[in-house]
């Protein structure tokens, strides 16, 4: 690439900018909206010149939504916290269970192994609504409804198969001989798993973790049915912005910005490992 002539580089830059603008424009627009009042957002024609205001953020963080119909209590920060708890704990639990399971599926042949792996994958095929109703009834009788524990458990339906199947592929790509070499050098099986297999599969684990986190973060229906306002994540909590007196675009935009931030930070963080995985390369024998 370095040997390209000047005009090719310029052309590539222009094209990339156009693509980036096209895809990032909605986010950029939402970002601008979050600093505007409902009036400036809705004026016609729209303009990017406006007087920025922080009132949307203030309203979200203080939990008091001021509209022309009066003051409305919203629990946005609570919802954001719930989202964080649910997603982080779900993904952590899935990693804890899924990474060793993925290794087992990748390395060992055992009875019904493929069937179990496929069954776990099939959780991703079924529409969530299919299982929600019976699940809600069971949870009701087990006392798990409206608890973090119950929600995190159900979130495993989303995160576990994803992590299991992505990480399994990465484990399969690692040369078994590297593990054997380490074991012949005098290390136990468990140590080999922790010191060789997991680090070598780290780009895969990072990718799976990122995807699982995004899916968990974006989940809507499970929490809508199985949780009350107290335990609801932002996806469900955002419904509160549709008020009797109208839709609060400014606050919606601000809440979007706030709720996208953790995912964005995580993506930026995990990206380093994804890139490292590409540059490490040549692990295969």
């Amino acid at each position: 690439m370095g040997s390209d002539s000047g005009w090719k580089r310029v052309l590539r830059g222009v094209l990339l900018t156009i693509v980036a603008l096209f895809f990032l424009f909605p986010i950029f627009w939402v970002f601008l909206m979050s600093f505007q009042t409902n009036e400036t957002i809705l004026r016609i024609p729209p303009s990017i010149v406006f007087e920025p205001t922080l009132q949307n953020y203030v309203a979200l963080i203080s939990g008091k939504l001021v509209s022309n119909a009066g003051v409305l209590e919203i629990a946005f920060m609570k919802n954001l916290g719930n989202s964080l708890i649910l997603s982080v704990v779900s993904v952590a639990l899935s990693l804890l269970l899924g990474v060793p399971a993925a290794y087992a599926f990748a390395r060992f042949k055992f009875r019904l192994g493929e069937d179990i792996a496929f069954t776990l994958l099939s959780f991703r095929f079924a529409p969530p609504l299919l299982v929600l109703l019976p699940l809600a009834l069971y949870f009701q009788s087990m006392g798990l409804i409206d608890t973090y524990f119950g929600l995190i458990w159900v979130y495993q339906l989303i995160t576990l198969p994803l992590i299991l199947w992505i990480v399994r592929g990465y484990f399969e790509d690692i040369s078994e001989d590297i593990e054997y070499a380490y074991r012949v050098d005098g290390n136990s099986w468990l140590r080999t798993f922790l010191k060789i297999s997991v680090p070598l599969a780290r780009p895969g684990i990072a990718a799976a973790m990122l995807l699982a986190f995004i899916f968990a973060w974006n989940n809507f229906v499970f929490a809508l049915i199985l949780a009350s306002a107290d335990k609801q994540p932002v996806t469900v909590g955002a419904l509160a912005f549709v008020t009797a007196s109208g839709i609060q675009y400014g606050q919606i935009a601000a809440s979007i910005v706030l709720s996208v931030t953790p995912t964005l930070l995580l993506a930026l963080y995990a990206q380093r490992y994804l890139v490292e995985g590409l540059s490490l390369g040549a692990v295969k024998g």
Binding site: I178, Y180, S188
Partner: peptide, 28 residues
Amino acid sequence: PPARRNVAMAFEGYALYPPLRIRDNIGF
């Protein structure tokens, strides 16, 4: 288990530890 057999092996697929320098691989 392999670790307790006290054997050394050279692999057809080399199986070097990618994050280690050759020096550290050999002396591992």
